[in-house]
């Protein structure tokens, strides 16, 4: 566990989380959420949890983003807040 890399990744994660809930375009918000998931998975690899990391990369970031994009394609893309 390298603490410098850890802190850089944690800062990126918090930035991505704040950006995902403030962006008004829902498609952009979902893509930022995917980036958040990949940063999270990098953090877990760095912390030694490799099994959790590749499950999150395939299931959380992959399938989750696809499901969100499919739902947004069938509904509205704009958000008021």
């Amino acid at each position: 566990m390298i603490w410098q890399l850890d802190i850089v990744l944690l800062v990126f994660i918090v930035i991505c989380a704040v950006a995902a809930i403030t962006v008004r375009d829902l498609l952009s918000a979902v893509i930022i959420l995917g980036a958040y998931s990949f940063f999270m998975c990098l953090l877990w690899t760095e912390m030694g949890a490799v099994d959790v990391a590749f499950t999150e990369a395939s299931v959380g970031a992959g399938i989750g983003t696809v499901l969100f994009i499919a739902a947004i394609a069938r509904t509205a893309r704009r958000s008021k807040d």
Binding site: I21, L26, V30, G64, F68, I72
Partner: peptide
């Protein structure tokens, strides 16, 4: 107020 935003919050 947007329901997709609520869902993103649940994921986080």
């Amino acid at each position: 107020r947007n329901l997709v935003k609520k869902l993103i919050g649940m994921n986080i």
